[in-house]
Design a binder for these strands. Sequence first.
DNA 1: CGGGCGGCCTGGAGGC
DNA 2: TGCCTCCAGGCCGCCC
Length: 279
Amino acid sequence: MPELPEVENVRRSLLPHLAGRSIEKIVVREPRLRWPVDRRGLKRWTQGARVDSIRRRAKYLLVDLDRTPRQSAVLMIHLGMTGRVGLAPVGKPLEIHTHVVFGLDNGRELRFVDPRRFGMVEAFAAAGELDHPRLAHLGLEPLEPSTTAAALAARAKGRTAPIKSFLMDARQVVGVGNIYACEALWAAGIHPQAAAGRLSRARWERLTRSVQELLSRAIESGGTTFRDYQDADGRRGEFAASLAVYGREGLPCPACAKPVRRLVQGGRSTFYCARCQRV
DNA sequence: CGGGCGGCCTGGAGGC
DNA sequence: TGCCTCCAGGCCGCCC
């Protein structure tokens, strides 16, 4: 569900609630998430720790925990498709599908809610981050200045897979999910089935710019909310109103008015304009 | 090895 | 009203 702009908005909204707070208590109500929650590990690395900062890598939230004088740690959270985090005073009734609760030192608690349980919650020693199996293989951050058209083209060299699959492949470039992959390709005028390894230099330039502008605008709009997504303050994103093709099968392309088409790639719906987007 | 697909889950929408 | 099918923003791991 949440792609880079949504996770970034969760990060920003969560930070003021957690910065400087200590985690006092951990309750795992449902350990059966995308990966089973390791209760002991979670408790070991987070209990008594103080939150220093929150980073985002791909679609993962990385909460930096200071455990001075002990080894510092990282609390990693992934929202999957339907995951949410929220803050509430201790004692406020728990929402259904609340799987993990972190009690803080200010009478409030951080709650992880995820109906479909595709998300994950895990903690580990900060020193182990680079080798973490979920993080080690991740590709380029699209909004990093070093992520240029040339860098992406180099990774796509020789690939016959469709460009849409390439954009959604986290080993190549992270944070781009189904919505923003469709939208970026539309903005760049590239057909989703075009072979990733056969795009011209000019098209890589346009696509890279489209991805970066799109993600930046989506972040500024608070992300895209269809149903579940909200930030840590319960705010929904407004970017759905700006989508050109995603979820708009049969509706007119905003650029040329030809009906938006849908196809299936890798089991996921792809929305595109057959006139504006060429192989 | 790259590429494609099934599966993990719940719940909402729509058809009958 | 209920029951059924399809679909959903992610990602891993299996298969060829």
